[in-house]
Simulated assay, not measured.
Amino acid sequence: MKIQVSKELLLTYFAGRATALQKQAIDEWAKDEDSRELFYMHLAAWERQNPQFIADDRNALERHQQRMQNGVTREYITPTVVEEEPAARLLHPGWLRWMIAASIATILLLSGLFFNDYALYRTYHTNFGQTRLIKLPDGSRVTLNANSTLRVPRFGFGTKSRKVSLVGEADFSIRHLPDHQRFIVATDKDFEIVVLGTEFMVSTRERTKKVVLNTGRVQLVYKEGKASKQLTMKPGNLVTFDTKGRVRLKHTSHPETFTSWKEHRFVFDRTTLEEIGNLFEENYGLELQITDKALAHWTISGAFRAYTAEELMETLATASNLTYTVQGKTIIVSQSH
């Protein structure tokens, strides 16, 4: 009997309670463009009701203010007091008032900065093994990969400017506005991307810093040493950064493979087991411990669908004649005999 994909089934799927057969039915159903739109609509509604990340800035600020009311000295170890002559320990009343005022000003300044960051920016975050679709106020779409963070201004976005900050990895589909306003993706890796309307992927992962352009045109602004440089990318361009920040530009015939993770697909092309270990660490927070140095250089090619780290490891082990054991957050991999 064919499984009918309903709203209730999709909600079960989003909550992680769908069976393997139900997942397969949803995969087939979502191949249709109209179905995908419906999928994303229900996903957005589900995420509003079940937020995966809630910033705790307000709670932290309230705790901080409570500590200040109750006395900050409770948070610290009382220092040892060395007895001296009484005259040496007395402070002039004017100095005492100045020190109290300075302390209060410092506390208010820190509290204000802490709260302003929360008030001015909305932060989206994904945990290990999680992806998330975000629709921005200007109509652009961003899909966050696992273990990633996107920061978006709460006010003036799309009118005054369109600048977001990314840590991790994300795929962008940018809407072109009538006034040709630029869209800027800032990173913490000494490069940023300037676009008008296009589709591209950005990764700021420590080992795999890269930008892949699917359609349109973007301008990459980066630093090599102390020098600022610019590079205009064309569709199919792949830019990577080495550990010293040097740029390498090449062409890829299939840029879409770099965002296959949006569909829970992993595409490997002569990818070493050591490189796959980096993926497990960055996307799932797991260490892949390879027992043999030669085994670390084994290469794997093919496309594999997996929704969890366990599913991906099981698929790779079956396809590559490997065995593995799980110990906490470590997966020990060896060759089958």
Rank of each mutant, 00 (worst) to 15 (best):
K2W: 02
I3S: 00
I3W: 08
E8S: 14
L11Q: 15
L11I: 00
T12K: 12
T12V: 01
A15L: 02
A15T: 02
R17S: 05
K23A: 01
A25H: 02
E28L: 13
E33V: 14
D34L: 14
R36F: 08
L38D: 03
H42V: 00
L43M: 10
L43C: 11
Q49K: 14
N50G: 08
Q52V: 14
D56T: 10
D56M: 06
D57F: 10
Q65R: 11
Y76F: 12
Y76S: 11
P79D: 07
T80S: 13
V81C: 15
E85W: 09
P86M: 05
L91W: 15
P93M: 03
G94H: 10
M99V: 13
T106K: 10
L109Q: 07
S111H: 02
L113R: 04
F114D: 05
F115E: 13
D117C: 04
A119P: 02
A119M: 12
L120E: 06
L120S: 14
H125W: 11
F128P: 15
Q130W: 01
L133N: 08
L133M: 15
I134C: 09
P137G: 07
D138Q: 01
D138Y: 05
V142D: 02
V142P: 00
L144D: 02
A146Y: 01
F155S: 09
T159M: 15
S161L: 09
R162Y: 14
E169R: 00
F172I: 01
R175M: 12
H180T: 10
H180N: 14
F183D: 04
T187A: 01
D188E: 15
D190C: 03
E192T: 12
I193H: 02
V194F: 03
G197C: 04
T198S: 11
T198L: 11
S203W: 00
T204G: 07
R205I: 05
R207Y: 07
K209R: 15
V211C: 09
V212K: 07
V212F: 07
N214Y: 12
G216K: 01
G216F: 00
V218F: 03
V218W: 01
V221E: 09
V221G: 00
E224I: 04
G225S: 03
M233S: 11
T240L: 05
D242G: 08
T243S: 14
R248S: 14
R248L: 10
H254W: 03
P255A: 04
W261G: 06
E263Y: 12
F266K: 02
V267D: 04
F268A: 06
E275R: 07
E275T: 03
E275I: 00
G277K: 09
E281W: 13
E281G: 09
E287F: 07
A296R: 15
W298T: 14
T299L: 02
I300Q: 13
S301I: 14
G302P: 02
A303G: 06
A303W: 08
F304S: 10
F304M: 10
R305P: 05
A306W: 09
A306F: 05
A309I: 11
E311A: 10
M313P: 03
E314P: 03
T315P: 02
N321V: 06
Y324H: 10
V326M: 13
Q327C: 01
I331V: 13
V333D: 04
V333Q: 08
Q335G: 04
S336L: 13
S336N: 10
